Amino acid sequence: MHAEQVASAENNSSLETVAKLSEMLSAKTETAINQIDHINGETQVLAINALIEASRAGEAGKAFSVVAEEMSRLSRKIVDTTDKLRKESRGAISELKNIIKMQATNIRGIRLSDLALTNIDLIDRNLYERSCDVRWWAKDSSMVSALSDRGNDSREMASKRLGVILDAYTVYFDLVLCDIDGNVIANGRPQQFRSQGTNQRNTQWFESAMNNASNDQFGFQAVHRSPLVNDQMAVVFSCCVRENCQSNGKVLGVLGTVFNWEALAQEIVNKTPLSKEEKSNSRVCIVDDKGTVLADTEGRILEDSIHFAGQGELYAMKKGFVMKKYNDNDCCIAHAVSTGYETYSSGWHSVIIQKLQSS
C-alpha cells in the first residue's frame, strides 16, 4: 500500500471514529434532557397537588402554599432551561457533523487529486523517455546509410536494425524510416505492419519533425488510430535523420517511433489505487485541453470528452478538486495538470470523477 493510501486510511478511520462519537454524544445528550423533562413533569404534578391541598387546608395551609408555588416556579425555569439546552446541544452537534463532513470531503478531494497527479506524472516521465529514444536512434548510422545509399541492401539492414531495437523496447508497435518526401523505406516489423511504400508527408508527426531546426528537437503526434499499425491507438514521436549523424546536418529523412499508447495509459488509469467500492463509483481519465478523452477506465478513448461546470477554474490550478454535478450525479472531481518531466511536458490533464454516496 502506498504511503498516501495509508495516510488516507488513517484519516478516514479517525473521522469515522469522531463521527460515531458525535452520534453517541447526541443520543446521550438527548436522553439526559428527556430524563430531566420527565422528572420535572413529575415535580410539576407534585406542585399542583400541593397547591390543591394547601387551598383545602385554608389558613393553616398558607405556608405550605408558598412552598408549592416556589416549586411550580422552579419547575417552569427548568422547562425553559432544558428547552434552551436541547436547542444549543442540537446546534453544536449539527455543526460538529458539518465539520466532520467537510473534513471528509477535503480528505477525499486531496487524495484523489494526489492520485491524479501521480497518473499524469507517470505518463510524462514515460513519454520523456520516448522523446529521448527517437532523437538517439535518428543518429544511428544504419538510418543514415539507408537514406544516403538508397540501395535495397542498406534499407534491409535498416529494417533489421529497427527490428533489433524493437526486440529490446517492447513499448513500441513499430519504428518507421521515411525519406525526405515522406515515403516509408524501412520498418522494424515488416511482416506484421506493411507500411513500406506508404507516404507519410501529410502526417503531423512527419511535418513537425521536418520543421525542427536540429536534432535537439523532436516531432510528435498525439493519441490517434495510426494506419501505420493497423489503426491501433498510438502516439508517434519523430526526429530528422541528418547527414553524417550531425544534429544540424542536412536533412535526409525522418524516423518515426510508433508508441503503444494503450499499454501505458490504460495500465496507469486502470491500476489507480482505489478500493473496489471506489472503483465502482469512479471514472479515471487523461484528457487534452479540449476535454477529449485520451485514456479512460470506461474505455471511451477518442470517443468522449469531459466537460463540467467550473472546469476552466479547476484546470487553471496545477492540482485541486471541486464538488460538482456530473451526469446528474453529485461528484468529487479531482484534477492535476502535467507539470512536465525534464524537457518534456504533454500538457494534458488527469481527471478522477467520483460519485458521492448519499448519507
Rank of each mutant, 00 (worst) to 15 (best):
R201G: 01
L228V: 04
L85Y: 09
V6R: 15
E298V: 09
F193T: 07
L147T: 05
R125V: 03
W261R: 00
G340T: 02
S22E: 08
S338D: 08
Q311K: 14
V79L: 04
I352M: 09
S22P: 00
Q246W: 08
L314T: 02
E342K: 11
V254F: 07
I33Q: 07
S145C: 04
V236H: 02
S238P: 13
I93Y: 03
N11G: 08
N187G: 04
K28G: 04
E70L: 11
W205P: 01
N212C: 11
D179W: 00
D133T: 03
T81A: 14
K87P: 00
S22I: 08
M210R: 08
K20A: 12
D114Y: 10
V6G: 05
R225E: 15
R150T: 06
I185T: 05
R56L: 15
E129W: 02
A60T: 13
K276R: 12
C178L: 10
D167A: 08
A50C: 06
F173G: 01
F237R: 00
C285W: 03
G41V: 00
T292R: 07
E16N: 13
R76Q: 11
L294P: 02
L162E: 12
I352A: 10
L46D: 06
A32C: 03
D153E: 15
T257D: 05
D167N: 11
N244T: 05
I301G: 01
K319S: 12
V284K: 00
Q266P: 06
K77F: 08
G320V: 09
D140Y: 05
F308I: 02
V241T: 04
R189A: 13
R242F: 11
K319M: 12
N11F: 12
Q221H: 08
G249C: 11
S72M: 11
F193W: 10
S346F: 01
T31I: 01
K279I: 06
E207G: 02
C285Y: 07
R108F: 02
Q44L: 09
R125E: 09
A234L: 04
M102Q: 12
A3S: 14
T339A: 09
H224C: 08
T170D: 12
I333C: 10
L15V: 10
G291M: 09
A309D: 13
R194P: 01
V66K: 03
N281V: 03
A265G: 12
A104E: 12
A19E: 07
E69Q: 13
C132K: 10
T257A: 15
A47D: 03
R73C: 07
V171M: 09
F220R: 00
L25G: 01
L96Q: 06
A213K: 13
L274I: 10
N199I: 02
A32Q: 08
A222C: 05
F193R: 00
G109K: 00
V6Y: 14
Y341C: 08
Y172H: 01
E4N: 12
N199H: 06
A213Q: 14
W348C: 10
V229C: 00
V235I: 15
D330P: 07
R90S: 07
C245R: 09
V293L: 11
V287C: 06
L166F: 07
A158Y: 11
K325P: 10
E278H: 08
N119F: 09
R194Y: 04
T170W: 05
K276S: 15
S305G: 07
E313P: 01
H349C: 07
